[in-house]
Simulated scan of single mutants.
Amino acid sequence: MRTDIFARLDREPEPPKIEIPRMSRTRLALFGGTSAFYLAIVVAVLASTWLVALDWKVMLFRPYQQWPELHAFLDYFVVLGQRGPTAVMVAAWLGWRSWRQHTLRPLLVLGAALLLLNCTVGAVKLGLGRLGPHYATQIGSAELFAGGDIFPSGHTANAVVTWGILAYLATTPRARRHLSALSAVVSLGVGLTTVYLGTHWLSDVLLGWAAGLLIMLGLPWCEPLIGRTEAWIFAVREQWRARRRLGVPSLPVAAGGPRTSPAGAPGRYARPAPAPAGEPVREPETVSVGGGRLAPSTPSPTGRTSGHTERPRPHGVRSERTPVTPSGSRRPPHSRTVAGG
């Protein structure tokens, strides 16, 4: 009796129908509150309010110098917010789930979330152009529109979205609660780690949390498009499989040789079979119709017969007819002997 994990997975029943999250009133309220918080952070930084002063106080405090023993561990921990490694890990897990559940929805949800993250966060980063703490030039300044790209924090927003996808796609309430707590701890830890390392202002982290949470709250609006995309991919796959089943493999043809078609199918380049040895070759017969001749019909690649019918010529008077020697006569020409030859 097999006791390994693969045997247990083979006996595992198919999961129940997955419930797709809807845009409920609670989710709408959270989305509106998070949007207001997002705008408040942007306005506070643009106006160089108390939030910018707090950024500078934390930066001048230099947490990485206050607790240097944490530096080695947090250098590795912050990788949980980098887009490349985290996307690969989560995509591998969701790919296995897609294979087990016979659906592409987990991977499509991850792709839609990452696309929204890149578009929204990237646009704000490039539009505001804020410099990081290590590149600041004037104390007390917001360092905006200076060619930077750190506001909001991409590490923080990516941690919220990437690990939050696991909770969003959970199939049971218990798993959803546990994964939500895990994603919250990871995203909070990654954001504070960037402040500790001095790579982001505190306001960058606050806006990164809000940006990632907005994407997670707005994902139900993308579910209809995700469903249509999945149905289209499956339809294309079925068409491809049907073509492979109905396709006739072509026979190998030597270079420069004639092409032949499979047996039973009319071929465009098919040649008639040669006559058996010893049997005379018959010339195609012509049929006279109304004074004209009908050339022998030849089959076309489409299965139709094509023939050329000569138009009948009017009968003239015997005196008007001119004897014509037929061309291509089979009789050999009469040999004339020359006298004295």
Rank of each mutant, 00 (worst) to 15 (best):
residue 86 T to L: 04
residue 136 A to I: 08
residue 99 W to I: 09
residue 122 G to Q: 06
residue 56 W to F: 13
residue 29 A to Q: 05
residue 232 W to D: 09
residue 239 Q to W: 14
residue 296 P to H: 13
residue 340 G to P: 04
residue 84 G to I: 10
residue 249 P to K: 09
residue 51 L to D: 05
residue 332 P to N: 09
residue 154 G to C: 00
residue 117 L to N: 00
residue 90 V to M: 04
residue 60 L to G: 03
residue 234 F to L: 14
residue 263 A to F: 10
residue 248 V to I: 10
residue 121 V to T: 02
residue 131 L to Q: 01
residue 160 V to Y: 00
residue 313 R to T: 14
residue 244 R to C: 13
residue 265 A to C: 15
residue 247 G to D: 12
residue 333 P to K: 14
residue 57 K to M: 13
residue 121 V to Y: 00
residue 243 R to F: 03
residue 240 W to G: 13
residue 211 A to P: 00
residue 241 R to Y: 15
residue 214 L to D: 00
residue 185 V to K: 15
residue 25 R to A: 11
residue 227 G to Y: 15
residue 7 A to C: 11
residue 123 A to N: 07
residue 59 M to R: 10
residue 282 R to C: 05
residue 274 P to V: 03
residue 64 Y to W: 13
residue 248 V to Y: 08
residue 155 H to D: 03
residue 314 P to M: 09
residue 74 L to M: 11
residue 164 G to Y: 01
residue 280 P to I: 04
residue 240 W to A: 09
residue 171 T to K: 07
residue 212 G to H: 02
residue 279 E to W: 08
residue 294 L to W: 11
residue 22 R to T: 10
residue 180 S to K: 02
residue 124 V to G: 03
residue 192 L to Q: 07
residue 273 A to L: 13
residue 63 P to T: 07
residue 202 L to C: 03
residue 139 I to F: 14
residue 336 R to H: 15
residue 9 L to Q: 10
residue 33 G to H: 05
residue 218 G to T: 04
residue 161 V to T: 03
residue 334 H to S: 14
residue 242 A to V: 07
residue 115 L to N: 04
residue 275 A to N: 10
residue 236 V to H: 15
residue 15 P to H: 09
residue 268 R to D: 03
residue 123 A to H: 06
residue 235 A to M: 02
residue 62 R to A: 08
residue 152 P to C: 11
residue 73 F to M: 06
residue 287 V to G: 06
residue 195 V to T: 01
residue 51 L to H: 07
residue 311 R to W: 05
residue 115 L to H: 06
residue 299 P to Y: 11
residue 37 F to N: 02
residue 120 T to M: 11
residue 14 E to F: 08
residue 206 L to A: 02
residue 199 T to V: 07
residue 254 A to I: 02
residue 201 W to M: 10
residue 309 T to V: 12
residue 264 G to A: 08
residue 288 S to G: 11
residue 237 R to Y: 08
residue 231 A to M: 08
residue 217 L to G: 01
residue 240 W to C: 15
residue 93 W to I: 13
residue 304 R to M: 12
residue 289 V to G: 10
residue 306 S to T: 12
residue 181 A to T: 07
residue 29 A to P: 00
residue 248 V to G: 08
residue 39 L to S: 13
residue 166 L to V: 05
residue 203 S to D: 03
residue 230 E to N: 12
residue 101 Q to A: 14
residue 176 R to I: 12
residue 36 A to E: 09
residue 253 V to A: 15
residue 71 H to T: 09
residue 158 N to P: 04
residue 157 A to I: 01
residue 148 G to H: 04
residue 90 V to H: 01
residue 192 L to H: 06
residue 208 G to W: 00
residue 21 P to N: 13
residue 211 A to I: 02
residue 77 F to W: 07
residue 64 Y to C: 04
residue 122 G to E: 02
residue 260 T to H: 08
residue 258 P to A: 14
residue 279 E to C: 05
residue 321 R to P: 00
residue 178 H to A: 06
residue 128 L to W: 04
residue 104 L to H: 09
residue 114 L to A: 05
residue 295 A to C: 10
residue 230 E to K: 06
residue 234 F to Q: 12
